[in-house]
């Protein structure tokens, strides 16, 4: 294939991805606006909110796990840091959710820098385990610090919500709607970050690190700087989602915010779709979320077993994920599916 043709196929692939991403965002936006005026859409609003919460974590995780190859097994730690930072600001200082989100994201980025300084010198399984330990450590600390509400968590008063309103809904009535749009904003940011990583020189460097870190150094990549930056970027959308969910549910709890389950769910989603692909994050999260919702409603008590079977199945049969598998099918698909 000529260089020109490769570039043309690549450009076509990027166009397809752009259109897909834009279509998803528009569809979500439409449903959100629709739900403001039609009660029948409220079910979709809620299930899509849950989807977008997971998706926010997945989009962050994909940067460090998918592109950089570092298996962050406790990535929900940033969801927790975001949620708790925002809650402290809202609970003690009455800060509004928008400012709280921004500070939460900054706090998570600072935390990622600090945690990364420790864990990013480890590779492979050692890194994975260290990230689990970090998550568990945060959970233990948070459940023991009174200022953070201990194991009871912190809960916002109803009066906190009086200032919020959207399209005629006021106070607590408005929260579910506003949260939906905030989550949509977070997901949009996460998709843009992933598109940037996928197409930039920075992302090329991350892929090289994923494939072979020594060889990456040898071709002039500052691997330490690159992977630290990747880790910091990967903390943003999980933290934003944590802040939004803390506000939406009006409570933070150690188990729910520093949650191994959420970490695992995001790993499943990334792997199912295809790690290190933009389309894979959407595909994987959508499939996982749909299947989970169906099973959770029909067989609520079986969900762990079904999780387990799914994960083992992916690992043994489809470790490269759906999009990753399609990309292997032909050179053309490799260029087309980003």
């Amino acid at each position: 294939m000529e260089a020109k043709n490769i570039l043309r196929e690549l450009a076509r692939g990027r166009m397809i991805t752009n259109i897909t991403v834009a279509a998803i965002i528009l569809a979500l936006l439409t449903i959100g606006i629709g739900s403001l005026y039609s009660e029948t859409l409220s079910y979709y609003r809620e299930t899509l909110s849950t989807f977008m919460m997971l998706f926010s974590v997945v989009l962050g995780l994909n940067i460090i796990l998918g592109y950089t190859g570092y298996v962050s097994f406790g990535h929900a730690v940033f969801f927790g840091i975001g949620g708790y930072t925002a809650m402290v600001l809202m609970y003690y200082y009455g800060v509004n959710v928008y400012l709280a989100m921004i500070i939460a994201a900054l706090a998570a980025m600072a935390a990622a820098q600090a945690i990364g300084f420790i864990v990013l010198r480890l590779r492979g399984a050692y890194f994975a385990i260290a990230t689990i330990a970090v998550l568990e450590a945060f959970r233990v600390i948070v459940s023991n610090v009174e200022y953070l509400g201990g194991s009871e968590g912190l809960q916002l008063e109803a009066s906190y919500y009086t200032g919020y309103s959207i399209a005629g809904y006021r106070g607590q009535m408005s929260v579910h709607y506003i949260a939906y749009f905030l989550l949509l904003g977070t997901v949009t940011l996460g998709l843009l970050l992933n598109l940037y990583v996928s197409r930039s020189q920075f992302g090329a460097g991350l892929r090289a690190i994923r494939e072979d870190e020594d060889a990456a150094e040898a071709i002039g990549i500052n691997t330490w700087k690159f992977k630290t930056l990747a880790y910091v970027l990967s903390s943003i959308t999980p933290a934003l989602a944590g802040a939004i969910i803390a506000w939406k549910r009006n409570i933070v709890l150690p188990e729910e915010f520093f949650s191994l389950t959420l970490s695992i769910e995001s790993i499943i989603s990334v792997m199912l779709g295809g790690a290190g692909t933009v389309l894979g994050t959407v595909t994987g999260t959508a499939i996982y979320h749909t299947v989970k919702t169906i099973f959770l409603t029909s067989f609520p008590s079986l969900h762990l077993i079904i999780f387990g079977i799914t994960i083992a199945f992916i690992a043994e049969v489809l470790p490269m994920g759906i999009i990753g598998w399609l990309r292997l099918m032909s050179t053309r698909l490799r260029f087309l599916l980003e």
Partner: peptide, 25 residues
């Protein structure tokens, strides 16, 4: 999953663990 990528063995053993946990729950 032996000899495959590290993530594959992490995931498949984790999956096995979840199945056990699910049964216990």
């Amino acid at each position: 999953v032996l000899g495959g990528p590290e993530l594959a063995s992490l995931l498949s053993t984790f999956g096995f663990g979840l199945i056990i946990l699910g049964i216990l729950e």
